[in-house]
């Protein structure tokens, strides 16, 4: 019954989001991608497939993180504001089932988005003679993980603060999470033990999104250590579970006024 309720909520959440025509963005991005590849094919010498792959993976990441941001901000807060949550939890459904179902529903949409854009990217890449290797698929999996962490981070903030502050906090953490690994490599940070220690601590506590970005390995066909892939996957999974635990804890005690 518990899993069944989660599945039902996830199913109708995905349905509601899909019927709101969010996937139109896939169509628009697909068209843009075809346009860029056409331009690259005609005006680039030698590196056409690399440009196509880079553009495809970047738009994949951008659109998926974008959906996670904009749909995630209102995923739970709008349910409370509009009192739609009342109709659901007045049924034999626990608060945890509601939250997990809602999040899985949006994750389903994110995965469909990633799947469609990945297929489109790989199709275009293949058509212009690109060579397939495992790091490309690892990058797609990393994008999925990044989206899940972003979504859960936004859901967490949306439960404890306003929508504007949720966007502000999440955006700040997203940008910082990507910049932190670069910051660690600056001479300023490397020469100061305290700064290095603070940056290391940041990566330990707050989401280190840079870990999920392996596009450089893909585009420049650098070999990716398998242990890096597994460690980052574990990091993503455990960070997501930690955020989900916090969300459930807060929502369980929240007054749904």
């Amino acid at each position: 019954m518990m899993l069944n309720n989660i599945f039902i909520i996830a199913k109708y959440t995905s349905k509601e989001i899909l019927q709101s025509k969010i996937l139109l963005n896939v169509l628009l991005l697909g068209l843009a991608m075809a346009g860029v590849i056409f331009v690259a094919f005609n005006f680039t010498y030698g590196e056409v497939s690399r440009v196509a792959l880079n553009f495809g993976l970047s738009s994949l990441s951008l659109s998926s993180v974008g959906i996670a941001f904009f749909m995630g901000v209102t995923l739970i807060s709008r349910e409370i504001e509009n009192r739609t949550v009342y109709m659901i939890i007045s049924r034999p459904v626990s608060r945890s089932q509601f939250i997990i179902g809602k999040i899985l529903g949006l994750m389903g949409v994110l995965f469909i988005n990633i799947l469609l854009l990945s297929l489109l990217t790989l199709l275009c890449y293949g058509l212009i003679g690109g060579e397939f290797y495992s790091t490309i698929f690892a990058a797609i999996i990393m994008t999925m993980l990044e989206c899940v962490v972003v979504l859960l981070m936004i859901c967490f903030f949306s439960l404890i603060t306003t929508q504007t502050l949720t966007v502000l906090f999440s955006l700040s953490l997203y940008v910082t999470g990507h910049a932190i690994s670069e910051a660690k490599l600056t001479t300023f940070a490397m020469k100061r033990e305290f700064v290095s220690w603070v940056l290391e601590g940041y990566q330990f506590v707050l989401p280190a999104f840079a870990k999920f970005n392996i596009k450089d390995f893909v585009v420049y066909q650098k070999s990716l250590d398998i242990s890096y892939f597994f460690n980052t996957t574990l990091y993503g999974v455990f960070y997501s579970l930690f955020l989900l635990f916090l969300i459930l804890l807060i929502f369980e005690k929240k007054n749904l006024d």
Binding site: Y12, E16, S20, R83
Partner: peptide
């Protein structure tokens, strides 16, 4: 239970919404 000033999922149809509620009731 029916809340005051009900507001349901705008992109679902009335039938989908009713099925949603029914399925949650087992």
């Amino acid at each position: 239970y029916l809340p005051e000033r009900p507001f349901f999922y705008p992109h679902l149809t009335g039938r989908e919404f009713t099925f949603f509620m029914g399925e949650l009731s087992g």
